[in-house]
Computed example of a mutant assay.
Amino acid sequence: MARHGSLAEQLGGFRIFATAPDHEPDPLQTTWTTTAANDNNPEDVEELKHDRKRLVTPSVQEIMKNVATGELERNQSGQITKIGRLKFSDGTQTEKAFRFTIDGKLEEYSARMTTGAMLGCRDKVDTALGGEINPQEITDSNNYFAAMLDTKKPRYVTGRRHKGPRVKLTHDEAKAELAAAYANTDMAKVTFTRYPDGLPCGSQRVADSFLGMQKTTCAGGGSVMWQDIVSQREDRREWLEAKDGMAEHHFKTLTDAAKAGSLKQLGQARGYSGQYAIEAGRRLLVAANDNFEQALELARSAKSST
């Protein structure tokens, strides 16, 4: 055992002792398995790729839309710097980019854009490609919530990009404007309209706003793979054989350590007090840990020899 290692690194046997189950493995526990069930031939999957959605901004449609406007802007040198809403470099602009240093680390730097390069472009890999979303399923789901909650049928409302200039008013100016509106209004002629109950319109799927009603995958129920059952039973058999091969006082030390809250409590249980209790608890725990590791190694050796 390394003398200079931390106490946690030295107590590997105690971790096995404390986490060992006190019962036979339950065959009905989970559908997850710790045994790999992958028989793919490396030569068969070598050329396979994982398709992912790639986002390129601006899109080809957006580029052609701006080109069709015919709006061009040139600088003093006659270089085209803008087509519609698309901006181009004149050789002096920079954009954030990444590169590898000599020691192989990735760093961010300001890359100079070549003359004529389109500015503000983005090319990144997004989510993995999968099945297409069926719009009819979304509509049926939204109508289900509307019928269940007795509300108006939902509709998806996107945010407006251009909301116009923002008018800034102080608190006193807002109060004065509201008072003027009340003074110019005949409340006897005011009618109040109550809008029907509705659903959130910020998402295409209303179900996204009701997370508690969504069904998700879980690992509960099912049968454990037979490989897991065999492995757990073998681990428990080794643990029982190692326990039988331990000295009685070492076994009692590990049992008390699993319940103790500190090394001091472990030492006090053996009659020590003060600082001596901490040192004694550490010494007793390390000795019992070594004894259990030796017994566990003997149990594994006996298994391999049979």
Rank of each mutant, 00 (worst) to 15 (best):
A2W: 10
R3K: 14
G5P: 00
A18N: 07
A18W: 07
T19R: 15
D22P: 10
H23E: 14
Q29L: 11
Q29T: 11
T31R: 15
W32V: 14
V45S: 10
R52P: 00
A68C: 08
L72C: 11
I83W: 01
S89D: 03
T94E: 07
E95S: 12
K96I: 08
F100V: 13
D103G: 10
E108F: 05
Y109H: 14
S110V: 03
S110G: 06
A111L: 10
M118E: 04
C121L: 08
R122I: 10
D123H: 05
K124Y: 10
A128S: 13
L129V: 11
G130R: 05
Q136S: 14
I138K: 13
T139F: 08
N142Q: 02
N143T: 06
A146N: 01
A147F: 08
Y156P: 02
V157L: 04
R161N: 13
D172M: 14
D172N: 11
D172C: 08
K175D: 12
E177D: 14
L178K: 08
L178T: 09
A181L: 14
A181N: 06
N184D: 10
A188Y: 03
K189H: 05
F192G: 12
Y195N: 09
G198R: 03
V206L: 08
A207N: 04
S209V: 12
Q214W: 00
C218A: 07
G221F: 05
M225N: 01
Q227W: 12
Q227P: 07
I229Q: 12
D235E: 13
K243I: 11
H250L: 06
D256T: 06
K264T: 10
G271E: 05
G274M: 02
A280D: 01
L284G: 02
N289W: 00
N289E: 05
N289F: 00
E293P: 04
Q294Y: 07
A295Y: 00
L296E: 01
E297P: 04
L298T: 06
L298R: 02
R300A: 03
A302T: 15
S305W: 03
S305K: 07
